[in-house]
Amino acid sequence: MNIHTYEKLWLIAAMVLIVGFIATITYGSVALGITMVGDQEDTIEPRELSEDDRFGEPRVEQVGENEYEAYVVARTFMFQPDPIEIPENSEVTFYVTARDVIHSFSVAGTNINTMAIPGEIATMTAEFDEPGEYGIVCNEYCGSGHHNMEGELHVLPEDEFDLTELSVEADDEVALEDDDEVTLEIAVENGQLEDLETTIEAEIGDETFTEDVTVEGDSTYETTVSVDAADLGEGDHDWSVTVDDYEESGTVTVVDQLEDDGGDDDE
C-alpha cells in the first residue's frame, strides 16, 4: 500500500489533532476539576417524589459554611423551586430529577446543564462568586408546553440572602367571656448554619412587642405573644409579625361568646 508522503504528513497531523483534543478535555477534567454528570446517585421512584426527603419539598439547603444543596424537580412544564435562591460566594450542588418525562435543567449563559431523566438524579456542583440572575430553560422537548418551561436562578448578595422562614399561628376568633387572650405563636426557622440575630416585632391592635433573639443555626426559635382579649375590646383587630423582611399578618375577631366552643381549648 503506497501512501503519498503528503498524505502521511496529514495522517500525522490528524492524529496530533485528535490526541490534542483528547488532551484538552483531559486537562479540563483533571487540572480544572470539571466533572461530568454521572451515576453517583441511586435511582428514585418518580411516583414517590412527594414522599422523598429531598424532593418532597424542592428547596435550597445549607450544608456547610458556604455550601448549599438545591433539590430541583423538573416537571411539565415548570421547575421547582422557582426561583432558586442562593447567596454569592457559595458552592452549590444541584440535585435534579424529573417527575414525568425527560427534561433538562440548563442555566442559560453558563456551563450548568444536565438532562433530567425520570428515575435518575443528576448532580452538579458549581461556584457562584457574583450576584446575578440567570434564566433556567428546559432544553429537551417535553411536550406541547415545552416552550413555556422556564425558571430562574437568583444569586443574591450575601446580606440579602437567608434561609429564614417565619410562621405564625393565631386564632381567628377569641371570646371575651372566657377571659381569653389573643395569642400569636411565632416560629422563626433558621435554615442557615450560622446563628441568626434578628428582632421579632409583633403588633396586635395597638399593642406592640419587640424581642431581640438569636436563632441558632439549623433550628427554630419559638415564642408567644399575647394580649388580653378584654384589652382589645369587641371587634376586628389586625395583627402582624415582622422578622427582617418577612411579615405575616392577619385579623382576629374578638366576640362576646363563641358560638361553638367545641374543639377550641387552646389554654
Binding site: 484538552t24 466533572t35 455550601e67 450542588t93 450548568i112 458549581a126 461556584e127
Partner: peptide
C-alpha cells in the same frame, strides 16, 4: 478555533460544574 472555543467560550462561560464528589463530605 478549538483553542478559542475551549479556553474562551467554554471556560469563560462561568459558572462551570466542578468536583461534585468532594464538597458533600465537607460538613462542619
Amino acid at each position: 478555533l478549538w483553542l478559542f472555543m475551549y479556553f474562551v467560550e467554554f471556560l469563560g462561560n462561568d459558572p462551570t460544574v466542578t468536583g461534585a464528589v468532594v464538597p458533600v463530605v465537607g460538613l462542619i
